[in-house]
């Protein structure tokens, strides 16, 4: 049911973008394209993953990502189970490995995990037979977010190669940035990251990106601008003096879009802080594709679930 991609999907886990090939990335995006239409039907359901069990293991609060996975699972007719950290075994001192082994004993086919610590999905993948999907691990990776961002860009621009993409905000603590950098550079886009020097991780340029320290420099000629959430709870780390000053320096307003490409699109992985990193006039403005990202997230996650479930192999 996928478009003709020469690449076959052989992975059991989706832990990050870093290890994917451009062909695999394209395969996911093409597969997502074929699932998009399901969301537009009056009866939004296909039997593809009937009889498959998916566990959503969320150790960190998340509304958007968890809902998106849940809807994707339901539209594919998978049985799903939500497991959240609050009120879970973790509060009782059980280790991640033990929690996972207990879930394993119930024989799920896929486990979607969100965790505050980088590498947690990788630890699970080593221990479990079920396929593991990383739904965000610390500041490391958030592969489905990067895939849905790429899907959204591709739908608007028809391509990824050669585009200039600016990513602005707290680069150091963002998993979205890392996955996006890997994906976009693999696909031939030019990526510029921008933000206060206190939020710029050491050696980021080694990932193949340009570093800008003013918003104007980042925005100039940009085809895509991604704004990142400034995490208010991290103010204790002395990264910026105040939200007010941050907005003055790096907040995206209509006026500051001046130097960007005429058909620039504005993205945000959410949740947004209006008036902190992005002004409402931009978030709700004509260039914004922020809500479209959310819509496409479902198609992309359906594609990932489908590919990892192995059913494409069973029916091949």
């Amino acid at each position: 049911m996928t478009a003709a991609s020469p690449v076959r999907w052989t992975r059991e886990d989706l832990l990050g973008i870093a290890e994917l090939s451009p062909g695999e990335i394209e395969l996911v995006l093409d597969t997502a394209e074929s699932f998009r239409e399901v969301g537009e039907r009056p009866i939004k359901k296909v039997p593809t993953l009937r009889g498959k069990t998916v566990v959503n293991l969320f150790f960190e609060s998340s509304t958007r990502t968890r809902s998106s996975f849940e809807i994707a699972e339901k539209r594919l007719s998978a049985d799903n189970l939500n497991f959240t950290a609050s009120g879970s075994a973790l509060a009782k001192g059980e280790s991640l490995v033990d929690t996972a082994l207990n879930l394993q004993a119930m024989a799920p086919d896929l486990i979607v995990i969100r965790h505050a610590h980088a590498g947690a999905p990788h630890l699970l993948a080593r221990k479990l037979k079920a396929g593991v999907i990383n739904a965000g691990d610390g500041a490391h990776e958030h592969p489905t977010q990067a895939l849905l961002d790429a899907y959204t860009i591709r739908r608007h621009k028809g391509r990824l190669a050669g585009l200039k993409v600016a990513i602005v905000g707290d680069i150091e603590h963002s998993r979205v940035v890392r996955s996006n950098i890997h994906l976009l550079t693999k696909m031939g886009a030019r990526v510029t990251v921008a933000g206060p020097r206190t939020m710029m991780p050491v050696g980021i340029e080694r990932l193949g990106v340009e570093v800008a320290h003013t918003l104007a420099e980042a925005v100039r000629g940009a085809d895509v601008i991604m704004m990142l959430r400034i995490q208010l709870e991290r103010q204790g780390r002395m990264a910026i003096p105040s939200i007010k000053e941050y907005f003055e320096l790096f907040g995206l307003t209509s006026a500051r879009l001046a130097g960007a490409a005429d058909d620039v699109i504005i993205m945000h992985p959410g949740p947004m802080n209006r008036g902190v990193e992005i002004a409402s006039e931009v978030a709700d403005g004509p260039y914004s594709v922020i809500l479209e990202q959310v819509t496409h997230g479902v198609s992309v996650r359906m594609a990932v679930l489908y590919l990892l479930s192995g059913v494409h192999e069973e029916t091949a």
């Binding site: 500041a139 998993r175 890392r178 050491v202 990932l207």
Partner: peptide
């Protein structure tokens, strides 16, 4: 060193782990 768990550099950046400079 703060909450760092590995050397601060290219690899801590790639892995998203807090660095110890």
């Amino acid at each position: 060193s703060g909450k760092g768990v590995m050397h601060e550099g290219e690899w801590s950046t790639r892995l998203g782990l807090a660095g110890i400079p």
